[in-house]
């Protein structure tokens, strides 16, 4: 409010002089400030990226380079041995490697699909329709952004066992389908990028609610569901299914890969390759979808 008043206030001539002086060097950036910013960013960038660079390089190092002293960051003679080692190790297990991959990719895909459909539908009516209880429901969703899995783990196990879902894929899929981050982001994005008037027009033309959702709303919020996809892969890819899955054939990939890593020094090479496999998919998806994700996050703020 105060700010708006200042702009509206009449400008007296003496002030124009001062502001002109400031305005000429542009947005008031000093060269030293820029240099400092640049150096600072470089330093932090190195701190942030160093462990990741190490993971990537280690995955391609032959055994003798992994244990070289003094250690080198960058790989000298890159090799794919570590990856072929994984398949050799996995071929000895009585569950085929492809089964673990199927388990993770399958649960991830099913959970993502239903999460996007269900959460978007709910977000759509929460944002665009005025029914009793919508504010309360949305408040609950915002508070639930703070629920960490560990806090809900015990009751979740009890609920799962009462529903008879322990040791089924549903135990991995359903908790994610109901996660609140996706609904929250979708609702905020809908409010910023889908004009209500457009929906009214479609309604007058006789389009049914589901048709409006499918043919008008969903295509318009593509950035938001790509973001939901990113977040769901981020949290589903590394899922180990501990406590929930006991049948070996239903265990996810990260569980099998963790078994390799726990083999210790002898499996350091394969372990390094495993680490790369575990971190790569979310990062790759983010590189591809960054623009859309940032579009979605622009409306992610919590409004009073």
């Amino acid at each position: 409010m105060e700010h708006a008043k200042k702009i509206d206030a009449p400008i007296d001539p003496s002030k124009i002089k001062v502001s002109k002086k400031v305005f000429n060097p542009g947005p008031a950036r000093s060269r030293w400030g820029n240099v400092c910013n640049f150096l600072f960013l470089c330093l932090v960038g190195v701190f942030m990226v160093f462990p990741l660079v190490m993971i990537i390089n280690n995955a391609f190092k032959p055994m003798d380079e992994l244990f070289l002293f003094p250690p080198r960051i960058f790989v000298q003679n890159p090799t794919l041995d570590n990856f072929s080692n994984i398949s050799v190790l996995m071929s000895q297990s009585w569950i085929p490697f492809s089964r673990y991959i199927f388990n993770t990719v399958g649960t991830c895909a099913v959970a993502t699909f239903f999460h996007i459909i269900f959460a978007s539908l709910a977000a759509y009516v929460l944002e665009k329709r005025d029914f009793p209880g919508r504010n309360v429901l949305f408040k609950i969703v915002v508070v639930s952004l703070m629920f960490t899995p560990t806090v809900t783990a015990i009751p979740n196990y009890i609920i799962m066992s009462k529903l008879g879902m322990i040791d089924t894929y549903w135990a991995l899929i359903l908790p994610y389908v109901g996660s609140s981050m996706g609904l929250y982001l979708m609702k905020q994005h809908l409010s910023a990028s889908v004009p209500t008037a457009l929906l009214e027009a479609a309604r007058i033309d006789g389009a049914s609610e589901l048709r409006i959702f499918r043919s008008i709303v969903m295509p318009m919020v593509k950035p938001a569901w790509l973001t939901m996809m990113l977040f769901s892969v981020q949290s589903m890819w590394g899922i180990t299914g501990a406590n929930m899955i006991f049948t070996e054939a239903k265990k996810p990939l990260s569980y099998a890969l963790n078994q390799i890593v726990s083999g210790g020094i002898a499996r350091a090479g394969a372990g390094a390759a495993v680490q790369l496999i575990m971190i790569a998919p979310p990062i790759l998806i983010f590189i591809v979808t960054q623009t859309q994700v940032l579009d979605t996050m622009a409306s992610s703020g919590i409004k009073d």
Partner: peptide, 17 residues
């Protein structure tokens, strides 16, 4: 329209708390 999501959300996120 909200039922599928809210059912799952309440069962696996709110009810546990």
């Amino acid at each position: 329209y909200m039922a599928p999501y809210m059912l799952i959300f309440f069962t696996f996120t709110v009810l546990p708390v």
